[in-house]
Each structure stands twice: as structure tokens, then as C-alpha cells.
């Protein structure tokens, strides 16, 4: 067995998986609190990439370069996407809060299609070249085989983001309120938690993560278009379900498992069947553990 090749694939899988995880967190947090699958989440990711593209373009013209551009583009993208996430919830989901569960789901699909077409019309349906914002670090040269500089930045940023998210959920006031709302929305309201604000915060946090993922992956693949949110969204949603939807560590684990499974499948068998491995794994895990890897089976109260 060729361990070097295996290790190369594993590294690739972890990078891919951590991007999936970053997007999956947005799905899982929203689901955890209002049991809604926010199908427009992939589009928020795409909008993040587009905003970063525009900011990076302007800044590159003004003579800045490298990591400064990346940082500022990411910050603007994050703010923009957060605003989109917040507005999306206000317009598309809040009026349907007490409607049957299918209604907000349809609304989510509608929002997804709307945003994709909006960007297509307002910007362009073509592919756009995204600048390579991560410079090549010299110290990465010896291990470039396994991790490129862009991969390293992705790993660092995702790890930091996830750590920050954990701290936020575990130790802050809003985090505590989020956990309370997740447990019981009505009860949380009764004890004086402003549930609407918590839900808005959840959407904002999810959108921030999606925007970060959008900027990272766009600067790695070097291109964006209005449809990239769809594929990313489907994969991240799969990762969220795999890990147990509604469960935050589950989304991270699900993303990593999915990324590694796809990479190993493509590396050892055939990349033509990459998606087949991803979804076959999903089916298998859901048969064995219907609630996902870390999900807890919900007891139906009668």
C-alpha cells in the first residue's frame, strides 16, 4: 500500500471536508432552532464569493495585493452576506413561522431560485475569474505535495472559525439563548428570551460562515458563477444530515467524513463516481443511524 498517496488524499479530503463543514454549520444551526432547511443557504455562500470578487477587483486595481485584499474582501463579504441572511429570514421565513412546515420549505426553495437568478441578471451568468488571493508561502514548499498554501489558509481559517463558534455557543449570552431556544422555543420565550432576535442571530452567524467558505473556496478554485451555490449547498446539506442535522459538532464531523469519503473514492476507484460515494455513504449511515452520526433520536411526545 502506498502510504504517501493515501496521506495526500487524506489531506485533500480534510480540506474539502472542512469547507463542507463550514457551510453545513449554517444548515444545522438554523434547523436546530426552527426546524427549517434553509435551501437558500448555498446562495448566501455564492453571494459571499461574488461580493469578495467585486471588492478584490476594486482593491487590486487600487494597487493592494495578497493577504490584505483577502482579509478586506472577506470582511466585506461577511457583512454583506450577514445582511442577506438577516433579510432573508425577515422576508421569506418569519411571516411563515407558524404556517405548516411545508410552507417555509417551499419559501426557502423559492428564495434560493430567486437569489441565483438575481445574481445572474444583476451580474452575469458567465464564469468569472476569481483572483488568487493567497500568496505562495515559502515555508510550505516542502509539504506542497500534501497541502498547498491556499489549503493551509483554508484549514487555519476553518479551525479558528469553528473554535470561535464553539466559544460563542457555549459561553456567551446569545449562545446560551440559542441553546435554550433550540431546546424549547415556547419555553424560551416564556422565560424572557427574545426568540426573534435569537433566530435572526442564528441566520447571521450561519451566513457569516457561508460567506467565509465562499471566499476561501473561490480563491482556491479561481472561478465563480451564479450557480456555484447549488452544488455547494447540496453537498453541505448532505454533510449536515450525515452528522445529524441540528447538531453542531455533527455538522463538522459530517463534513469531514463526506470530504474524506469522496476524496478516497475518487482517488482509489474513480472520480466519475465521486457523488455516488457521497450519497451511498449517506444512505448507508442513515440506514444504520437514522438520526445521523451524532444526532439524537427525537422522542415523539404523545
Amino acid at each position: 500500500m502506498d502510504f504517501q498517496y493515501l496521506f495526500e488524499l487524506l489531506c485533500g479530503g480534510i480540506v474539502k471536508g472542512s469547507i463542507y463543514a463550514l457551510i453545513a454549520l449554517g444548515y444545522t444551526m438554523v434547523y436546530g432552532i426552527i426546524q427549517l432547511i434553509n435551501f437558500a443557504h448555498g446562495e448566501v455562500y455564492m453571494i459571499g464569493a461574488f461580493v469578495a470578487f467585486i471588492v478584490a477587483g476594486v482593491m487590486t486595481l487600487s494597487g493592494y495585493s495578497g493577504l490584505t485584499v483577502l482579509l478586506l474582501a472577506a470582511v466585506v463579504a461577511v457583512i454583506y452576506s450577514a445582511a442577506y441572511g438577516y433579510t432573508l429570514e425577515k422576508i421569506a421565513y418569519r411571516p411563515l413561522r407558524n404556517a405548516p412546515r411545508l410552507s417555509p420549505l417551499i419559501s426557502a426553495i423559492g428564495a434560493s431560485i430567486f437569489l441565483m437568478n438575481y445574481v445572474q441578471l444583476a451580474q452575469t451568468p458567465d464564469f468569472l475569474p476569481f483572483p488568487e488571493l493567497v500568496p505562495e508561502f515559502e515555508f510550505m514548499a516542502p509539504i506542497e505535495r500534501y497541502l498547498s498554501s491556499a489549503d493551509l489558509v483554508i484549514l487555519i481559517v476553518t479551525t479558528l472559525t469553528m473554535a470561535a463558534l464553539t466559544v460563542l455557543i457555549k459561553y456567551t449570552r446569545i449562545g446560551k439563548a440559542m441553546r435554550a431556544t433550540q431546546q424549547d422555543l415556547v419555553m424560551a420565550r416564556l422565560v424572557g428570551i427574545n426568540v426573534d432576535r435569537v433566530i435572526s442571530a442564528t441566520f447571521i452567524i450561519g451566513s457569516v460562515l457561508a460567506a467565509i467558505a465562499g471566499v476561501l473556496i473561490a480563491s482556491r478554485t479561481g472561478q465563480i458563477n451564479a450557480a456555484i451555490g447549488f452544488v455547494a449547498g447540496i453537498k453541505a446539506f448532505t454533510a449536515a444530515v450525515l452528522g445529524g442535522i441540528g447538531n453542531v459538532p455533527g455538522a463538522v464531523l459530517g463534513g469531514l467524513v463526506l470530504g474524506i469519503a469522496e476524496t478516497l473514492g475518487a482517488g482509489y476507484i474513480s472520480s466519475a463516481y465521486e457523488d455516488v460515494f457521497a450519497f451511498a455513504l449517506l444512505v448507508l449511515i442513515l440506514i444504520l443511524r437514522p438520526a445521523g452520526l451524532l444526532g439524537k433520536a427525537v422522542k415523539q411526545k404523545v
Partner: peptide
């Protein structure tokens, strides 16, 4: 000799191969 998934986010595995 392999197919790749059009529109996928990442082709690292196939490149490593």
C-alpha cells in the same frame, strides 16, 4: 481514463491521482 463531475468544488483527488 476518468470522468469528473462538472461544477464540483474541488478536483484535488483526481489531480493527486
Amino acid at each position: 481514463y476518468e470522468g469528473i463531475q462538472p461544477g464540483a468544488m474541488d478536483y484535488s483527488a483526481v489531480i493527486q491521482k
